[in-house]
Design a protein around this nucleic acid. Sequence first.
DNA 1: ATTTTCAAT
Length: 194
Amino acid sequence: MEASTAPWTRCLLDENTFNENFMNQINPRKTYLCYKVEILDGDTRVLLDEKKGFVQNKGANEPGKPRHAESYFLDRIRSWNLDRGLHYRLTCFISWTPCHSCAQELATFLGENSHLSLHIFASRIYSLPGYEAGLRKLQAAGAQIAIMTSKEFEHCWENFVDHQDRPFQPWDGLEVVSQHLCNSLQTILQMQEN
DNA sequence: ATTTTCAAT
């Protein structure tokens, strides 16, 4: 069997897809979401390697109803029926922060699933109306939300990209843009609702 | 200080 058709490659992005969607200084019109799942046991974290993967949104130009990437992600989590007697950490690396609607859905989901924790690292901030309140609501529901830095981009490259043993190559401006977005996100998350 | 973005002018 060729490497490209081996079962594990189904959960890997090709290099171009990763770069086109996660480069933080451009604004692609689609969203990718990479996820991993760990069991938390005291100070120990056990990665469930078979539950790592990625989803992408379905655009308005495709047949059927458009769906954001987070919706597909929630479908997958629900399909696993994770043991309520254990505690899990879900980590997402997503190319845009959740819109207000998805943030609300995720917040509700976390409220109904106290055995799950959610960490979100986003490449850039999706800033259509209502996004700030949505992100604050998601944070209030217990999610940790952060901007991807070179550390997270490299982690994604190593774990979610079919990189053919090539090392991660940071792009020009990665750090500057990331730092700016970190500052913006902090301001958003610290603001009070009114 | 940085934007128009989970497509369709």
